[in-house]
């Protein structure tokens, strides 16, 4: 290869805001960013466990803290983000997972449907536990 030519190749640069150029890129970046919400729920759960462990007083204080408007707002937002995160992952799962039943590939819609069913079932159980 002639060295001169390598220098003359035009290198296309990826623009800084590349992820805004396309809906799918944006969705992807959202999917990645919304994982922050999942992290938040883990932290929140740890805080809860610590509060329970530290006795009733601490637990009361934790509940008060959680009931503050800005905390409710944060959690509501985090829930929305986590739901988005879950849905975007469920959307791509059939692509990554190939299930075969009697030699035939299970269609993607069925697979995604099964995930949603499982998700709602687990949510329903938790809801029952909380309400009872």
């Amino acid at each position: 290869m002639t060295t001169g030519l390598w220098q003359r190749l035009h290198r296309q640069r990826v623009p800084l805001l590349w992820w805004t150029s396309r809906r799918t890129y944006l969705l992807f970046v959202l999917r990645e960013l919304t994982s922050v919400a999942v992290v938040w729920f883990v932290v929140y759960l740890l805080l809860l466990v610590r509060a329970v462990g530290a006795g009733p007083g601490e637990y009361e204080r934790f509940l008060d803290w959680s009931a503050r408007p800005w905390m409710v707002a944060i959690n509501a937002l985090a829930l929305a983000l986590a739901v988005l995160h879950t849905i975007t992952w469920f959307m791509v799962t059939p692509q990554a997972m190939v299930l075969k039943v009697r030699g035939h590939r299970v269609p993607g819609l069925v697979l995604a449907g099964a995930l949603y069913v499982a998700w709602f079932a687990v949510s329903a159980v938790i809801l029952l536990l909380v309400l009872s």
Binding site: R22, T24, Y25, F28, V92, Q95, A96
Partner: peptide, 16 residues
């Protein structure tokens, strides 16, 4: 796993 490769593929290969 952006998945854009699969959408771009003209032959239905599904690289993602």
């Amino acid at each position: 796993f952006v998945g854009e490769c699969t959408r771009a593929c003209p032959k239905g290969v599904d690289p993602a």
